[in-house]
């Protein structure tokens, strides 16, 4: 018997919302991986120039921020869409005093 309320397949909008959250989960891992690259350079033995490292780190940092920005936009759009589709107002995380 399938658990109630858990559809096996989703409509396009919900599907892409799910993928957006997947991406949001994945992004920091990608960032971590790339920020750990200097370790591999070190193992390589060849020292990179400080300027090169600076450009790498800050360039990557900027890209990560941009990625997070775009993902946030997509996530909030998806969340609004879902809320609208479910016919309830967009929750603004106000008080949760309901019992």
């Amino acid at each position: 018997m399938k658990p109630p309320g858990r559809p096996l397949f989703l409509a396009r909008r919900n599907y892409s919302a799910r993928r957006a959250t997947d991406a949001a989960r994945l992004l920091p891992l990608v960032g971590l991986f790339l920020f750990l690259m200097p370790l591999l350079w070190q193992a390589d033995g060849g020292a990179r120039s400080l300027t090169g490292q600076l450009i790498y780190i800050f360039g990557l940092w900027a890209l990560l921020i941009l990625g997070a920005f775009l993902l946030t936009k997509r996530l909030s759009r998806a969340a609004d869409g879902q809320d609208a589709a479910a016919g309830r107002p967009v929750s603004t995380g106000g008080s949760d005093d309901q019992l």
């Binding site: 949001a24 960032g31 971590l32 920020f35 940092w61 990560l64 921020i65 990625g67 997070a68």
Partner: peptide
């Protein structure tokens, strides 16, 4: 930065 970017976790 990584912690904030990974806020979904």
């Amino acid at each position: 930065t990584l912690m904030l970017v990974g806020w979904w976790w």
